[in-house]
Amino acid sequence: MLKQNRNWTDNPILSVEHLTMRFGGLVAIDDLSFDVGRGDITALIGPNGAGKTTVFNCVTGFYKPTEGRIALRRDQHATDEALHELTRSGRQYSETDKGSIFLLERMTDFRITEVAGVARTFQNIRLFGGMTVLENLLVAQHNKLMRASGLTIGGLLGLPGYRRAADAAKDTAIEWLRRVDLLDRADDPAADLPYGAQRRLEIVRALCTDPVLLCLDEPAAGLNPRESTELNTLLKYIRDEHGVSVLLIEHDMGVVMEISDHIIVLDYGKKISDGTAAAVRSDPKVIAAYLGVDDEEVDDVERDLNVKTGHDATAGGSL
């Protein structure tokens, strides 16, 4: 079920503009601009070393970009003027009646999750293996709990306000566990789960932070076909029922093509294609990048592309 409207130009939740990331002499991302539509599943694809994870690291505050702006608009009516104003003011974010905007490149890691509402998972599984499945989900909801417990003192004394918050947190966690079929393993150590279940748990743990944007780094890696299908269902459910926008890096083209509303293709830190699954699939540049052709041939392909789809590429491009 692909949506026909172009959410990413009309109603972006995340706008990455002129992002550049250099590590010494190596340019990992080179003047990259793209938008992620609100309520879309957006896939970031590209050959190995294209800079996909680096983009994630910039968005989630792991890296400070060398240049560029990463703006997250929490609500729809955040205007461009408000964004310019915020950029000039030097502040990290503004929450006014003109809408909440967060400049992620100015924020540090835990604030991005706590205040802006961006959650992420990694390529490798990073669960808290020594804690139970349920506790993993409760850690993700600790901001609510800390406020309710008056910085722990209420929690120790078991005050009613904290109890209520704790029960609510547990309910949320149980709801998610039921959704991913892990309810019967709630009290087992997370490390004891099979691989596919750990992947699912990571995704719902990220969701327990109550994000508006969920960034998943290769969620289907190492899953068997049945598990990838379940993953597709879960991601669609997250998008459709919870209104969470999803940005994912994925190599499994079956997953990407089936669920993505919007695909961005990177190669050597540059965007080479941007559009719907159908548009990207037939883009000669993408094919060239994936099949690995000689430089000269790429030039040929690019010339072809400019002739054939030149106007299309600009329409789907950045601001």
Partner: peptide, 25 residues
């Protein structure tokens, strides 16, 4: 039992991941 304790244990296992879940490490 408390949320602080859970955060503490989470930071013990993976500080980076804890901060990504919004824990003030």
């Amino acid at each position: 039992k408390t949320s602080l304790g859970r955060q503490q244990r989470a930071c013990e296992q993976d500080r980076k991941m804890a901060s990504l879940l919004g824990v003030n490490v």
